[in-house]
Amino acid sequence: EKVLKRMREIKNELLQAQNPSELYLSSKTELQGLIGQLDEVSLEKNPCIREARRRAVIEVQTLITYIDL
């Protein structure tokens, strides 16, 4: 939940920025750090946690791809 919240904050900052190119590098670095945090999530045998992590990774990767474009 914390990762998704921060990812959404970054997305809003990028969309509202007057000059978003200044934010791209720092935002991309922070998003890659969020992916690292998601990699540390213990998936164990809980399919709900596994699915939530998968969705979060996809959302963060989508935003990274947007920045790259």
Rank of each mutant, 00 (worst) to 15 (best):
V3W: 01
V3G: 01
R8W: 07
E9T: 06
K11P: 00
N12K: 12
N12H: 14
N12Y: 06
E13L: 08
L15T: 07
L15A: 11
A17V: 14
N19H: 02
S21H: 13
S21G: 12
E22Q: 12
E22G: 09
E22D: 11
L23D: 08
L23G: 03
L23Y: 07
L23T: 04
Y24F: 09
S26A: 13
S26I: 06
S27Y: 09
S27T: 08
S27L: 12
K28T: 01
K28M: 07
K28F: 02
T29A: 12
E30Q: 07
E30L: 03
Q32S: 07
Q32M: 09
Q32W: 04
Q32K: 03
G33E: 11
G33M: 10
L34F: 00
L34A: 00
L34I: 05
L34E: 04
I35G: 02
G36P: 11
G36C: 12
G36Y: 04
Q37A: 07
L38Q: 02
D39N: 12
E40P: 12
E40M: 10
E40S: 13
E40Q: 13
V41P: 12
V41Y: 08
S42H: 02
S42E: 14
S42M: 10
E44T: 07
E44M: 13
E44L: 08
E44Y: 10
K45G: 13
N46Q: 10
N46Y: 04
C48E: 15
I49S: 12
I49F: 14
I49D: 15
R50N: 11
E51D: 06
E51I: 03
E51F: 05
A52E: 11
A52W: 06
R53T: 14
R53H: 15
R54K: 10
R54E: 15
A56R: 02
A56Q: 03
A56Y: 02
V57W: 05
V57N: 03
V57Y: 12
I58C: 14
I58P: 04
E59F: 02
E59Y: 01
V60Y: 03
V60K: 00
V60M: 11
V60C: 14
Q61H: 02
T62S: 14
T62M: 10
T62F: 01
T62C: 09
L63V: 05
L63D: 03
I64G: 04
I64A: 03
T65Q: 12
T65R: 14
Y66W: 15
Y66E: 15
D68S: 05
D68K: 05
L69Q: 07
